[in-house]
Simulated scan of single mutants.
Amino acid sequence: MKKTITTRLLASLIPLFAIFCLSGYWFATDLIAFQKQPLLITQSQPLKVESGTSVIKLAQQLEQQGLIQDSWKVKYLVKLEPKLASIKTGYYQLLPSDTLETLFKRLRLGQEAVFTLTLIEGKSIKEWQHTFAKSEHLVFGTDDFNQVLINNGDTSGLPEGKFYPETFHYHAGDSVQTVLQRSFDMMQMSLKQAWEGRDADLALTSPYELLIIASIIEKETGKPEERDWVSAVFNNRLKKGMRLQTDPTVIYGMGDRYKGNITRKDLREATAFNTYQIDGLPPTPIAAPSRASLFAAANPAKVDYLYFVSRNDGSHVFSATLKAHNRAVNEFQRKKK
Results as ranks from 00 to 15, higher is better:
215 S>G: 07
29 T>L: 14
273 F>W: 14
208 Y>F: 11
20 F>E: 03
118 T>D: 05
58 L>V: 04
206 S>W: 05
66 G>K: 09
137 H>R: 15
74 V>P: 00
93 Q>C: 11
52 G>I: 09
14 I>G: 01
52 G>T: 08
107 L>E: 06
204 L>V: 13
249 T>C: 10
179 V>F: 11
263 T>H: 03
9 L>F: 12
18 A>Q: 03
139 V>D: 01
2 K>N: 07
219 K>N: 12
236 N>E: 06
275 T>R: 02
181 Q>V: 01
184 F>Q: 02
36 K>D: 15
241 G>C: 05
186 M>Y: 12
12 S>W: 08
290 S>P: 07
67 L>F: 11
25 Y>A: 11
84 L>M: 12
336 K>R: 15
313 D>I: 04
94 L>P: 14
256 D>Q: 09
158 L>K: 15
211 L>G: 04
315 S>C: 03
91 Y>N: 14
243 R>G: 12
211 L>A: 09
99 T>R: 04
305 Y>L: 06
317 V>W: 04
35 Q>C: 03
9 L>V: 13
309 V>H: 02
152 N>K: 09
132 F>R: 05
230 V>L: 05
34 F>M: 02
248 P>C: 06
85 A>P: 08
275 T>A: 04
138 L>N: 09
93 Q>E: 15
83 K>T: 11
277 Q>S: 02
183 S>I: 08
148 V>W: 06
156 S>M: 04
321 T>Y: 04
106 R>W: 04
31 L>C: 08
136 E>L: 13
266 D>A: 00
145 F>G: 01
83 K>Q: 14
111 Q>M: 00
198 R>F: 00
290 S>N: 07
35 Q>F: 09
68 I>F: 11
237 R>F: 08
17 F>V: 14
124 S>Y: 08
224 P>L: 12
145 F>T: 00
246 T>W: 00
119 L>C: 11
291 R>C: 07
220 E>T: 07
223 K>F: 07
244 L>E: 10
173 G>F: 08
101 E>G: 00
200 A>L: 13
249 T>M: 10
61 Q>H: 08
198 R>A: 05
95 L>C: 01
191 L>G: 06
259 K>E: 13
30 D>P: 00
13 L>V: 03
192 K>V: 04
7 T>L: 15
298 A>P: 01
197 G>M: 02
295 F>A: 01
187 M>W: 03
124 S>Q: 10
261 N>S: 12
197 G>C: 01
92 Y>I: 03
249 T>I: 06
297 A>D: 12
192 K>S: 15
63 E>S: 05
107 L>Y: 06
328 A>Q: 03
74 V>Q: 08
64 Q>H: 11
159 P>C: 09
110 G>V: 00
109 L>H: 02
35 Q>P: 00
44 S>Y: 06
117 L>N: 07
79 K>A: 14
121 E>R: 11
169 H>L: 06
297 A>C: 10
79 K>H: 09
125 I>Y: 05
125 I>D: 05
5 I>P: 04
105 K>S: 12
115 F>K: 02
96 P>L: 13
218 E>N: 10
218 E>P: 07
179 V>T: 14
18 A>T: 12
135 S>N: 09
184 F>S: 03
1 M>P: 03
312 N>T: 01
37 Q>R: 13
157 G>D: 07
26 W>N: 03
153 G>C: 07
61 Q>R: 09
123 K>R: 15
174 D>L: 05
261 N>G: 00
121 E>M: 07
